[in-house]
């Protein structure tokens, strides 16, 4: 459904996308996972023909993005990071006007708006001002708008960034329903949990490149250890723990107040007992993958 070959995008002297090749199959949910500045948003803008490619080829639903931008956009639903809702209009009017822009008659557009609002659980807010919606509702409305024209592909740029846990869960629920409807989804995220829960395949992006690609399970198997020890401790104990890990020859990474120690040679990390340190073991996850892969990427620079 989407075919990208050697895509390059420069902004003046900056290279935002640096030779990306990928394919997304029909009905698949494909995730771009990476930190801010990885090139995810730029790649999605290229896909929606909102930004011209510097080099490479990008084909969506059999249409060339460079030459058939308008036709490509007829087949796409896009949710940008900033929602892009029209605050001068009501919830329902946002959808109706978008449908009219997209080529529906005013009556068809109204009917479709009613259906889509119901699907996204926003029917009782139909006549509300946009400013009266919660962040999660605004995001759902933005997704509803992208879904209005029953597109072949939906593009979501960080669909749950900035939402509270409840809002996030509701958005995930709706995305899972969209996925079940068979639409092809391309989404970017920097939440590993989101990528693991929703994506069939994931591309790890860093500094404008795709470093690796695969199903979440494949990536975890390839790059993350099966078990990771999580060490929680009081701040004062940290220096001591670092020294002990170094002495025992373990690699580790620190995230906030927690130290993560991956297994070595398939063996669960054996750590000397330390005062004030609580150790739990968990399976390796995409977060470990990203650090392993992006860390390697950084090392190559």
């Amino acid at each position: 459904m989407i075919r990208g070959r050697d895509i390059v995008k420069h902004f003046g002297p900056t290279t935002a996308v640096d030779g990306v090749t990928f394919d997304v199959m029909k009905g698949e949910t494909y995730g771009l996972l990476g930190p801010n500045g990885a090139g995810k948003t730029t790649l999605m803008r290229l896909l929606s023909a909102l930004s011209p490619l510097t080099a490479g080829e990008l084909v969506v639903a059999g249409l060339n993005v460079t030459r058939q931008g308008r036709a490509v956009r007829e087949r796409l639903g896009v949710v940008t990071q900033q929602d892009g809702l029209d605050t001068d209009l009501t919830v329902r009017q946002n959808l109706e006007i978008y449908g009219y822009f997209s080529g529906l008659s005013r009556r068809e557009s109204s009917q479709r708006a009613v259906e889509v609002l119901a699907f996204f659980g926003l029917s009782d807010r139909a006549n509300d001002d946009i400013d009266h919606l919660s962040g999660g509702m605004k995001r759902r409305l933005a997704i509803a708008r992208a879904f209005l024209m029953a597109p072949d592909v939906i593009i979501l740029d960080e669909p749950t960034t900035g939402l509270d846990p409840q809002g996030r869960n509701l958005v995930w629920e709706k995305l899972a329903a969209l996925k079940a409807s068979g639409v092809t989804i391309l989404m970017s995220t920097h939440y590993m949990e989101e990528a693991a829960a929703l994506c069939d395949r994931i591309a790890i992006m860093h500094l404008g490149r795709i470093l690796d690609e695969g199903t979440p399970e494949e990536l975890i198997e390839r790059h993350a250890s099966t078990e990771v020890a999580q060490l929680r401790m009081v701040t004062e104990a940290r220096a001591e723990v670092r020294a002990a890990l170094a002495a025992a020859g373990y690699a580790w990474r620190e995230a906030g107040a927690t130290i993560h120690v991956p297994s070595r040679n398939g063996q669960r990390p054996q750590l000397p007992p330390m005062d004030g340190v609580r150790v739990t073991y968990r399976p390796g996850n995409l977060e470990d993958v990203f650090l392993a892969v992006a860390g390697r990427g950084l090392g190559e620079e």
């Binding site: 929606s48 036709a71 007829e74 896009v78 940008t80 929602d83 892009g84 809702l85 029209d86 708008r145």
Partner: peptide, 13 residues
């Protein structure tokens, strides 16, 4: 406000 960016994702120039 991002509204034009949204409209431009429709088949609009």
């Amino acid at each position: 406000g991002g509204f034009y960016e949204t409209v431009l994702t429709a088949p609009v120039t």
